[in-house]
């Protein structure tokens, strides 16, 4: 089970967090600070796994971002490493040559993609095609909702004249 997902930039800025176990706000801040210090200081040649308070943190660096996932001690670390890669591939396919700015300005899309891949700390969908299809359908729904909302606003405006 994955306890939380963090995206941290090389300067220690937090770009995206997702918590699958209950953590209070104070605990979250403390966790982020500890793990930032722990992961950002590791060299590129070292293991991608870090033991931390009885858990394991699997991290992977893509350009200027570190993707970190905290898992239970008995889980398969290589599998989680590939789940991170799977997530990055889906992001790349959706945004097209995804970069840090895409995640900053479209963070709600990133959250939605993450929700499609992981749910309750478990891998939900391992097919990139299915994830892409669902996200496209969601985008269409949002567009339709916007159009409908604007048309309703027009009707109400006319009615009140």
């Amino acid at each position: 089970m994955i306890n939380f997902v963090l995206l941290i930039s090389r300067q220690g800025k937090v770009r995206l967090t997702k918590w699958y176990s209950p953590y209070t706000q104070k605990e979250r801040t403390k966790v982020i600070r500890e793990l930032s210090g722990l992961i950002l200081t590791r060299g590129p040649k070292l293991c991608n796994f870090v033991e931390w308070k009885g858990y394991k943190v699997v991290y992977r660096r893509y350009a200027s971002l570190y993707f970190c996932m905290c898992i239970d001690a008995e889980d398969n670390e290589l599998e989680v490493l590939e789940i991170i890669h799977h997530f990055v591939e889906v992001l790349d396919r959706y945004f097209g040559s995804v970069c840090e700015l895409d995640l900053i300005f479209n963070f709600h899309k990133a959250y939605y993609i993450l929700d499609e891949i992981l749910i309750a700390g478990e891998l939900q969908e391992s097919s990139k095609k299915n994830v892409a299809r669902l996200i496209a359908a969601q985008d269409s729904l949002v567009e339709a909702a916007k159009e409908e909302a604007s048309s309703i606003s027009n009707i109400i405006a006319q009615a009140t004249k």
């Binding site: 729904l141 949002v142 909702a145 409908e148 909302a149 309703i152």
Partner: peptide, 11 residues
């Protein structure tokens, strides 16, 4: 309008 948006919008 607000309730309409809430109803239609998935997010």
């Amino acid at each position: 309008t607000s309730s309409q948006q809430a109803t239609n919008g998935g997010v």
